[in-house]
Simulated assay, not measured.
Amino acid sequence: MTGRDAPDAATGYELRVAGHLDDHWAAWFEGLTLTLEADGTTSIRGVLTDQAELHGLLAKVRDLGATLISVTSVDTA
């Protein structure tokens, strides 16, 4: 399937970044859940409506200067 064949659909994602993000970043990642993990990383998790929203989230992580460890699609059921 090519990118043009794939319909835009809401999908759950989990991004993991190095380090623990302070609580004040929760507002910047509005609608997403930030979880401080025991291994020293932060997971950012939620449902994104389409690829454009995913790219916007990736840009926020970039602008924050955080090291992106992984991006995973997750089951939202």
Rank of each mutant, 00 (worst) to 15 (best):
D5S: 12
H24K: 10
T76M: 01
M1N: 09
G46L: 10
D8I: 08
R4N: 06
R16E: 15
V47Y: 01
D50C: 10
T72W: 01
L48I: 09
A77E: 15
G65P: 06
G46W: 11
V61W: 07
A38R: 09
W28N: 08
T67Y: 08
A52T: 10
E37H: 02
L68M: 10
T41K: 01
K60T: 07
V71W: 04
T76D: 04
A9P: 01
D5R: 15
I69G: 05
R16M: 06
F29D: 03
T11E: 11
W28A: 09
D50H: 11
L64P: 00
W25V: 01
Y13W: 12
T72I: 08
T42Y: 00
H24Y: 15
G19N: 07
G40H: 09
E30Q: 12
T49E: 12
R45K: 14
D23K: 11
A27P: 09
A77V: 14
T2Y: 02
A18P: 02
E14I: 13
D5K: 12
T33Y: 01
D23L: 14
I44Y: 03
D63S: 12
L54I: 09
D39C: 05
G31M: 06
A77I: 10
L48G: 02
R62I: 05
D5H: 15
V74D: 00
A10M: 05
S43K: 06
A59D: 14
G40W: 06
S70W: 00
A27F: 02
T42G: 06
T76W: 02
L58V: 04
T72H: 13
G40K: 05
A66I: 06
L32Q: 07
D22C: 07
R16F: 03
V71R: 11
G31K: 10
L21K: 02
S73P: 11
S43F: 02
T35I: 10
G19R: 03
G19S: 07
H24F: 13
D8Q: 14
A10Q: 11
H24D: 14
S70Y: 03
D5F: 09
T2C: 08
V74Q: 03
R4L: 11
I69D: 02
H20F: 06
D50Q: 06
T35E: 13
E37D: 13
R45P: 00
D23P: 01
L68H: 09
R4I: 13
R45C: 05
P7C: 04
A59C: 06
D50G: 08
L15G: 00
L15T: 02
G19W: 01
H20I: 12
A66N: 11
H55M: 13
G56L: 09
V71N: 04
G19P: 00
D23W: 01
D75M: 15
T2H: 08
G65H: 07
H20T: 07
A10R: 15
V61F: 10
D39L: 10
T41E: 04
L58N: 02
D39E: 09
H55V: 11
T76S: 10
Y13S: 14
G12Q: 10
L58E: 07
